[in-house]
Write a protein that binds this DNA or RNA. Structure first.
Length: 208
DNA sequence: AGCCAGGCCAAGC
DNA sequence: GCTTGGCATGGC
């Protein structure tokens, strides 16, 4: 029961209120978009260092990033890892938005930007544009698989996204919180090597 | 001291 | 279509 899982996680961890975090960027959209790219396959702790560097150097928008040299950005976002790729992706996105404008942006258009895949596109659409797109990540697949709700942990992105969206009310806040709660639970217990003994979901879980 | 983190893309079957 | 390797830093 997908929706029940959401309610359980909400009860366990409370509201997450993920984004926007700092409010120190030129717009909420810019903060979400930049954070979403920087966090690709990276610990949020490292992303925070890079975000702080951006704020400290006054680069608080995609436009500012587009104006900066690659070498400068390398230094600034270095703690987030994959800094050459991410510099390129951020500039790709900034350039795309410069001509497309944020108003009629959506998941599909974001996917046309090189460096932005399904999860990042959905993350920006949901948290940055307030569009009803469920975000699927590694933790989501892992948790659903261990709970017995997925056949495989390698299920295709779209299938997992559909499963979630079919079983949830069309509520942006639910989408936002649920994804954040899954990540929180994934960090605490449902890791690659899970901590099942102390896991609050162990009685509902197949894996333990 | 490894292993892992809120992925994505290109290349090779 | 699916699998594999490259990209990189910092925390535990």
């Amino acid at each position: 029961m997908i929706y029940q899982l959401y309610k359980n996680l909400l009860k366990m961890y409370g509201k997450q209120n993920w984004w926007p975090v700092s409010g120190k960027f030129k717009s909420d959209f810019d903060e979400v978009a930049i954070g979403a790219v920087l966090t690709q396959n990276t610990n949020w702790n490292n992303v925070e260092k890079a975000l702080k560097n951006l704020i400290d150097t006054g680069k608080t928008s995609l436009e500012d990033i587009l104006q900066s040299s690659d070498e400068e950005l390398y230094k600034i976002i270095k703690p987030a890892g994959f800094y050459r790729q991410k510099t390129k992706t951020l500039k790709n996105l900034a350039a795309f938005i410069e001509k497309e404008s944020v108003e009629n942006l959506n998941r599909d258009k974001l996917l046309s930007v090189k460096g932005i895949g399904e999860e990042t596109a959905d993350t920006i659409a949901l948290y940055g544009l307030n569009q009803l797109e469920f975000v699927v990540d590694k933790y989501t697949k892992r948790l659903l698989f261990r709970l017995g709700l997925l056949k495989s942990e390698n299920e295709k992105y779209f299938n997992v996204k559909q499963l979630m969206e079919k079983n949830l009310p069309p509520d942006i806040e639910v989408y936002k919180e649920f994804h954040a709660l899954i990540v929180e639970h994934g960090k605490r217990y449902c890791r690659k090597n899970p901590l099942c003994d102390d896991c609050p979901l162990k009685d509902k879980c197949y894996n333990s």
